[in-house]
Amino acid sequence: MTVEEATEQPTVAPREPWAGWEKIIRVAGVVVAVLATVITALIELELTTLRSGGLVNLAKGSSPWEGGGVLIPLAVPVAIGANLAISWFAVTVTGRRWALGPPWALWTLLMLAAAGTRTTEGDYLLSDSNWVALVMILTGSLTFAVYSYKMILKPVAVSDSRLSGSV
Rank of each mutant, 00 (worst) to 15 (best):
S129W: 01
E121L: 15
V31I: 15
P73N: 01
T48E: 08
K60Q: 14
R51M: 10
W18P: 00
E44P: 00
V30G: 02
T92Y: 14
P64Y: 05
F144Q: 03
V38L: 08
T139W: 15
G81K: 12
S161H: 14
V56I: 12
V34P: 07
K60R: 13
K60V: 04
G68E: 06
S161V: 14
S63V: 01
D123I: 03
L138P: 02
T139H: 11
G61F: 02
K150D: 04
W18M: 12
G140W: 04
A145P: 07
A13H: 10
W131I: 05
T117D: 05
I137K: 01
G116P: 00
T120S: 15
A41P: 01
G69R: 01
R162Y: 09
L84S: 04
S129D: 10
R97I: 07
A99M: 12
F144N: 03
I43H: 09
S127A: 12
G29H: 11
V38Y: 05
W104C: 07
V30H: 02
L142S: 08
V34M: 13
I86Q: 03
E4L: 08
Y124R: 05
K60F: 09
R162A: 15
V158D: 14
V34E: 09
L71E: 08
G165A: 12
T120W: 11
V3R: 13
L55Y: 04
L74M: 06
I39W: 07
W131D: 04
A33Q: 06
P77T: 09
S87Q: 03
T108M: 07
I39M: 11
W65I: 03
S161G: 12
T119N: 02
P102L: 04
L142N: 09
F89I: 04
Y149I: 08
Y149A: 13
W98L: 12
I25T: 08
S127L: 04
T119I: 02
G68L: 00
T40V: 09
K150W: 01
A59V: 07
I72Y: 03
Q9G: 00
I39Q: 03
P102I: 03
D128Y: 06
K23Y: 07
T120F: 08
S166Q: 15
G61I: 01
G81W: 04
V32P: 05
M1Q: 13
L42R: 06
L142H: 07
W104T: 10
A157M: 01
S129N: 10
S87A: 15
V38D: 03
L163M: 15
R26V: 12
K150A: 10
A6K: 12
S127F: 02
G20V: 02
M111K: 04
R51Y: 00
L45T: 00
T48I: 12
D160C: 02
V38A: 08
E66I: 10
K23D: 10
G53E: 00
F144P: 01
N83W: 05
A75Q: 07
A13W: 05
L35I: 15
L71H: 06
G165Q: 12
V78D: 00
V38T: 01
T37D: 04
K154Y: 13
T49V: 11
R96M: 14
L126W: 06
T2R: 14
L50T: 02
K23M: 10
S148P: 07
R96N: 13
T49S: 10
I24C: 09
V132M: 08
R162Q: 14
S164T: 13
A157E: 13
V146P: 00
N83A: 06
L106A: 00
A13P: 02
